[in-house]
Computed example of a mutant assay.
Amino acid sequence: MPRRVQELRNKVRVARRELTQHPGSPEPSLAAVAAHTGLTEEEVGAGMEALESFSTLSLDAELSSDDDGYSLADTLGSADASYDVVVDRESAKEGLRRLPERERAILYMRFFEDMTQSRIADRLGISQMHVSRLISRSCARVRADAMGQRTGRRGTGGHSATA
């Protein structure tokens, strides 16, 4: 909130308190607060709006007066599953960089070019079984590295427990 609006909020809050000191006093009008503070009605309106920004509302609060009313919770979005994909990809990046070039190439052909293990084996001149073992071993390394990085981010200073 800009400093000017904060100042307006404080002036309006003090003026409302002063104008309603006696129990049962009605809520002062915009014009009354403006006259009391020397502010314009527009400035008082901005200050009042700023005051309302600090009030809380229950997630179960009804937002519609209709019979088919809805609550504030009904207007909120849900968690996007794509965030998990981003986190997983970022976690795997460093482990992929650490793999030997040939293993990175094999993983790229398998998972990004959607090649079968047999086609990869033919292209590289190795057996399909060897490709299968390299994929398994590479994925295990990347997974272990990603899990180590996640643990490292939680306060171990980036070093895994096995280091």
Rank of each mutant, 00 (worst) to 15 (best):
S118T: 01
E113P: 09
A105M: 09
L96E: 13
G95C: 02
L134A: 07
H130V: 09
I120W: 04
Q117V: 04
M129A: 15
R119W: 06
A144M: 01
Q128R: 14
A105F: 05
L99G: 08
S127V: 04
A105R: 10
R104Q: 04
S132H: 05
G125A: 09
E94N: 12
Q117M: 06
R110L: 13
I120P: 09
M109W: 13
M147P: 09
L96S: 12
Q117T: 00
G152H: 11
E101V: 15
M129E: 15
R97I: 13
R97D: 13
C139G: 09
A140C: 14
S118Y: 03
I126G: 04
P100Y: 01
A146Q: 06
S127K: 05
P100C: 08
E94Y: 14
R98W: 11
A105Y: 06
Q117K: 01
K93L: 11
R104C: 04
A146L: 04
E103L: 00
A144N: 10
L134W: 15
G148P: 08
L134S: 10
V142P: 06
S138H: 02
R150N: 15
E101H: 12
G152W: 13
I106W: 00
M115Q: 05
L107Y: 08
C139S: 07
F112S: 11
R104M: 05
Q117P: 06
R123H: 10
E94L: 11
L134R: 15
D114P: 04
V131E: 07
P100I: 02
E113W: 06
A105G: 08
D114C: 15
T116F: 04
R143M: 13
H130E: 14
A146Y: 02
I106S: 11
F111H: 12
A140F: 15
H130L: 13
Y108V: 02
L96K: 12
S118H: 00
Q149H: 11
R119S: 08
V131W: 14
G148V: 03
T116Q: 02
M147T: 00
A140D: 15
R97W: 01
I135H: 00
S132L: 01
E113F: 09
G148E: 01
A121W: 01
G152R: 11
G152P: 11
L107R: 00
L96N: 14
A121L: 03
H130F: 04
A140E: 15
A146M: 03
S136D: 12
T151R: 13
M115G: 02
I135P: 03
S132P: 01
R150M: 15
R123F: 10
R133M: 01
D145C: 09
R123Y: 12
Q149T: 05
S127R: 02
E103D: 06
Q128A: 10
R137T: 10
M129W: 00
R97P: 11
R141N: 08
R143T: 14
I120Y: 01
E103H: 01
I126W: 00
R150D: 15
I126D: 05
G95D: 03
G125F: 02
R97Y: 04
I126H: 07
C139D: 07
G148Q: 06
